[in-house]
Design a protein around this nucleic acid. Structure first.
Lengths: 347, 347
DNA sequence: AGGAACGCGTTATACGTAAAACTCCGGCGT
DNA sequence: ACGCCGGAGTTTTACGTATAACGCGTTCCT
């Protein structure tokens, strides 16, 4: 397929300059170039020589060969962030936080969207074939985890069952508290018949949400809690919600959704059935993504500190890489009441 | 910061096995290991020996060192995909297409979200510090382009001005045709007073859309076309739309948006002003992302073959890398009429 | 005065892999 | 009997970098 023999593919390819070329141009040895360009020269190389080297490097357009450096150093200063979906704004924000912290420490972050059931390569390392120093993975990205294990790479898990996966560190969100706040909010408004529109994607974080919701409602007499499940897509959410709202007699007055996307589907279902949100039906989301405010009415939801998850995750990974004990984190979440919740209709 | 001396960080680190270890375990030379594991051994190594090597590699848990391989080969089989935004579903789909083609050719794709003004590192290579074979970049990711130039890496541009940037290849969408179809659709419904809710992000693709819309309307007498601009966010779109709808006398009957996100904002603005979509105001989007069907009514929009853009982009990059002349592509788009457009209200 | 110390470099080596060049040997044609 | 070929490996080298180990002319201390 490719035609083999290493370097010159065509004739006139000028062959990328190496540190040796810089050395020749500056009239010094290659080691000196390395010293200067690696900022390790204080007291070992004169200022004049250093400037010479820098000028030569600039002149011939030298850019260090990352592969060679990585090989020599035995480390790459690159972390892999495994997320379940690119389109989910939550994970985009996690990336932003992680990348910011990484940059501050001279690290890079490479993104790998775990191909949830899309017949794509299940092996993150097939995609990010860069040599890696460590991995940060969301609990929802279960597909990729098996490939990550069987590697000696340090692993930081995001929002996942503590201790389960041989991870070196965990960064969790207090999603249980988020669900309790949702429950409290709805109970306070007077809702008693509630249906949980839950994620069909199995994941620790959703199990926790379900358990927290159930416990919060069990403490109050006269409540009922149903559950329907759907994959995290608008249309699937709509269908599941339509099913939940089908029985007219015992129709729930509130739909608690595991995700803003599902909540969007629920709102659509309500409209199709002629129910007004929030007058006839209250709907809550989770995550507080942009969609939550694009809908009419805007969604009551739970805001997650996504950037901070990324930041803490990257910090934990750096801790592990540098031999420090990583901090164990559980980040707080907050309720954002908006227009999609109201007291239930009078009986 | 890190404590220098290469390999053993702690005491008991078992030192990742190398091909030499496999050789020793299998009782052959390291070269033979390389031959066998690289699938280059037909006729050079006996079947029995090959199996011996494979068994040894499996036993001691050998995984090749990517950095070393990349150095030796002078190529990494990794491409960088530069996108302006992670959350935009369009680019997620472009990634999917590119990754699929890449996988078929033993390539990986690393994603770099160009930090549109978000004070993050402007240098893609700071993030993806993997050695790269080539770059595929969206025209909207202007921030990163300057860093990519000044590199000898082959560059494939997506949806950008042909020939402008020293790119080795281009893959474009026929967005002009998309806009013409939108215009035709609205004119056919009877609309004459139209406002273009345009992207405030400067980009070739948006320039083309604006020009196409203008030209399409100029051909019809009695039409008027206004323009307001907004960054690609729901709230910004809402504000811009409110401004466009402010003057009651000459209020437009249709809002043509550069993007579904902006269209969502426009719908919100309409509701705030008490206008019903599509009865009082028609709204069109562009891209056909999930949001388009989450809204009520669903958006009339233009569907872009995003996966195919990614596929063609990756194919073009492979062409360039292997010395073939890359195909020049212009992909067709299609109009998706839905509920957000209707004849204008009677005067 | 004699060497230790220092400033300013250089030479040499290693990282792990892929592949070119070489070795060894048994069989075959002439 | 001899050269040649092909099979089955091995030895060697190169990729570009970072750094440990070494060299050498000055200067400084005692």
């Amino acid at each position: 397929m490719a035609d083999s023999t290493g370097r010159p593919p065509a004739a006139g390819a000028p062959a990328r300059p190496t540190s040796k070329d810089v050395a020749r141009a500056a009239g010094v040895s290659q080691a000196t170039v390395s010293l200067v360009l690696g900022e390790k020269w204080r007291g070992r190389v004169s200022e004049r020589t250093a400037e010479l080297v820098r000028a030569a490097a600039r002149d011939i357009g030298y850019r260090p060969n990352l592969a060679a450096r990585n090989l020599r150093l035995g480390r790459t200063r690159t972390a892999l962030l495994v997320v379940p979906a690119l389109t989910n704004e939550f994970f985009a924000r996690v990336y932003t936080g992680a990348a910011a912290v990484a940059a501050r420490h001279g690290f890079g972050v490479v993104l790998y969207p775990s191909p949830q059931g899309t017949g794509l390569a299940r092996d993150p390392f097939a995609s990010a074939r860069a040599a890696l120093d460590g991995v940060i993975a969301s609990s929802m990205a279960a597909d990729a985890l098996s490939a990550i294990r069987g590697t000696d790479l340090p692993l930081v898990m995001l929002d996942s069952a503590p201790g389960a996966t041989g991870a070196a560190a965990h960064v969790n969100l207090d999603v249980a508290d988020g669900m309790r706040r949702i429950a409290g909010h709805l109970l306070g408004l007077g809702h008693r018949r509630i249906v949980h529109l839950a994620s069909a994607v199995p994941s620790w974080t959703f199990d926790v949400r379900a358990a927290a919701l159930r416990e919060a409602l069990e403490g109050v007499s006269g409540t009922s809690l149903g559950t329907v499940r759907a994959p995290l897509e608008v249309d699937a959410g709509r269908r599941a919600a339509e099913q939940a709202l089908a029985s007219p007699g015992t129709r729930p007055t509130a739909l608690v959704c595991d995700d803003d996307i599902l909540a969007a589907g629920a709102c659509k279902a309500a409209r199709r059935l002629g129910l007004r949100v929030p007058h006839d039906l209250s709907v809550t989301g989770f995550d507080d993504v942009a969609l939550a405010r694009a809908l009419e009415p805007e969604l009551t939801t739970v805001r997650l500190p996504a950037e901070e998850v990324g930041e803490r995750g990257m910090k934990a990974l750096l801790d592990v890489l540098e031999g420090r004990p990583p901090a164990l984190d559980q980040l707080p979440v907050s309720l954002v009441p908006r227009g999609s919740t109201a007291p239930p209709p009078a009986l």
